[in-house]
């Protein structure tokens, strides 16, 4: 099956006083219909900027997409003009954000915000758009959707707002859904519900999901494949199962070792990765992870390692492993 979303060689920079910040560098991946791809990585590694680049919502200036292509069902979004891109947003590629508390407009009813999306992309009456809003709220399992549609965001809990966001994002049945840390701001039980919901809707509607998170537990439960980002670059890619079982890149090895394991016994310390992420406006010449890597050799300081296939369906960018 041909992938619905094909990203290749995507690079995004920010022009700042402190120099050029390379937030996303040469990132490629693809997602098939009904598949979930997770993007993981530490805070500041460029996950959100990758997502916003796909939507072409990078604040510009100072941001700029400098290279690459983003194909949704064959159409390269980066080649479209702004009106053309606006038609794609919401109808072909939609996004939900990290903060359900602030992502909805406080002065408009939830129903109206969903209906707005529908009437924007589909030639339907106001009445039909409102009916769709209620239907979508019902779809994301919000009880009493007729009443809830007339409510304002502040009258809903965080989990409910995030469901409403999902309802809005999926109202026009986009081919691709980008979820940027959709559950980080929610408490654990609600997290599971929201993730289940995204999973179910994905199967039902055949949406390709890009799930951004730094929670490896979430990845293990929900993603078919994953890519690991470090300092703006993709450093590893493969099926979730494979990567968890046998990570190639020392960075992912470190991340996996830093997860607390049940039954590891008392007194065993969690391993952490020493050092900090390098500044994106002042990256080292070689591998960005080398300064923190215990396996690093001389070559790592010299040149950026290319992404190599380590096993079928599993690639990593490391000189050593």
């Amino acid at each position: 099956m041909a992938p619905v979303l094909e990203v290749s060689g995507l690079s995004t920079v920010f022009h700042t006083r402190a120099g050029i910040v390379r937030a996303v560098q040469d990132v490629s991946f693809s997602v098939e219909a009904g598949e979930t791809l997770a993007i993981v990585g530490e805070s500041g590694c460029g996950k959100t900027m990758t997502a916003l680049s796909l939507m072409r919502l990078i604040p510009s200036p100072p941001g700029e997409i400098t290279a690459g292509s983003v194909k949704v069902a064959g159409t390269d979004l980066l080649k479209l003009d702004e009106p053309g891109m606006r038609k794609m947003r919401g109808s072909q590629i939609a996004m939900i954000f990290q903060e359900p508390m602030t992502a909805l407009n406080p002065l408009l009813t939830v129903g109206r915000q969903i209906a707005e999306m529908v009437s924007l992309h589909e030639n339907v009456s106001r009445r039909a758009a409102n009916a769709r809003a209620v239907e979508m709220l019902h779809h994301v399992r919000i009880p009493a959707p007729e009443r809830r549609a007339r409510e304002y965001p502040h009258q809903m809990s965080g989990g409910m707002r995030q469901r409403a966001m999902i309802a809005m994002a999926l109202a026009c049945r986009p081919k691709v859904l980008i979820a940027d840390e959709p559950t980080t701001a929610l408490d654990v039980t609600i997290q599971a519900q929201v993730l289940d919901l995204i999973g179910d809707l994905r199967k039902e509607l055949g949406t390709a999901v890009v799930l951004i998170t730094h929670d490896l537990g979430v990845v293990a439960e929900t993603a078919d494949r994953m890519i690991v980002m470090y300092a703006g670059r993709k450093v590893e890619e493969g099926t979730t199962k494979d990567l968890f079982a046998d990570p190639s890149h020392p960075y992912l090895q470190g991340l996996l070792a830093s997860i607390p394991k049940f039954g590891a016994g008392e007194g065993t310390r969690l391993r952490e990765i020493p050092g900090i992420v390098p500044a994106l406006n002042n990256l080292p010449k070689g591998c960005a992870f080398a300064p923190r890597c215990s396996a690093a050799v001389a070559k790592c300081q010299e040149a950026i390692p290319p992404l190599e296939t380590k096993r079928p369906g599993h690639a990593a960018a490391c000189w050593v492993t």
Partner: peptide, 25 residues
């Protein structure tokens, strides 16, 4: 604000974002 970004992500035009979403607030 985040909700302005949300409005843009829906595919709304700049005037619609400015007047229906931003100005009201």
């Amino acid at each position: 604000q985040d909700y302005v970004r949300t409005a843009r992500s829906k595919g709304l035009s700049e005037p619609a974002v400015t007047f229906t979403h931003a100005l009201r607030n």
